[in-house]
Design a protein around this nucleic acid. Structure first.
Length: 229
DNA sequence: GACCAGGCACATC
DNA sequence: GATGTGCATGGT
């Protein structure tokens, strides 16, 4: 069985078990919850770093209630006020700086307008995002996929665990190898990448945990090279 | 009360 | 270059 077929089978098993995960919307398919703006998705992608999504929702609700979910308002807001609003998301001092560094880039380079960065090529936008302090591989790729609907596969710790357990890559693989495994083996389909990443997070949280066995996992009958990673 | 969550930058070896 | 550590809240 080819890598492409294996990845497709994994996707189908996960979708069959868990169904759509309703992450950030894919407007091309109309999935997810309508109304999340590109700006809100970007802010959410930064706030959710190593943080439970329900905590991020509280922080975003605070920003909305303060009429602060706009680039201009956040750009001009003082650090203490912003930190207080995003407090429920945890790491609020660090995340305040990270949001500010994104906004500073947006205003300094692109007049504070998301429409202006929308025009950039995927490669250029990715490079620019990675140069912002506080935006690493996963956050940059989440922004590219979920906010700008570019066909970029988002890799995280769950992705690595599933891929390694099923012998698709070595345990020593890096982010780029994991990303290219999916991007080269699957068709470049934004809706597929959107749902696939969300499903990998789901199976990672529910079953494919560190040191946990595979019983009950929708992937448990697939070939494993390693039971625990 | 321990453990985890939709990471990242930085220090240290 | 690899490994360790700080950052912080809220749910289970």
């Amino acid at each position: 069985m080819s890598t492409s077929e294996k990845l497709t089978e994994i996707y189908e098993l996960l979708f069959e078990r868990f169904g759509p995960q309703h992450w950030w919307p894919c407007t091309r398919l109309g999935t997810g919850w309508p109304g999340d703006s590109q700006f809100e998705i970007i802010i959410g992608a930064i706030l959710t770093q190593n943080t439970n999504w329900t905590n991020v929702e509280k922080a975003i609700a605070n920003l909305k209630n303060a009429n602060a979910l706009s680039a201009r308002v956040l750009y001009e807001m003082n650090l203490e006020e912003l930190a207080a609003l995003i407090k429920p998301a945890g790491y609020f001092n660090i995340k305040t700086r990270r949001l500010k560094s994104f906004l500073t880039w947006l205003f300094d380079e692109y007049d504070g307008r998301i429409e202006n960065i929308e025009q950039l090529s995927t490669a250029r936008l990715r490079e620019d995002l990675l140069n912002i302090k506080g935006i690493g591989n996963e956050t940059a790729d989440s922004i590219l996929l979920y906010a700008f609907e570019r066909p970029i596969f988002v890799v995280d710790a769950y992705t690595a665990r599933v891929v390694i357990r099923h012998g698709l890559l070595e345990g020593s693989c890096d982010y780029e190898q994991l990303q290219q495994l999916f991007q080269f083996s699957l068709t470049e389909d934004v809706a597929l990448f959107n749902e696939y990443h969300a499903l990998l997070v789901r199976v990672g949280k529910d079953f494919c945990k560190p040191k946990a066995k595979c019983s009950g996992c929708p992937l448990e009958n697939l070939p494993h090279t390693i039971e625990t990673v």
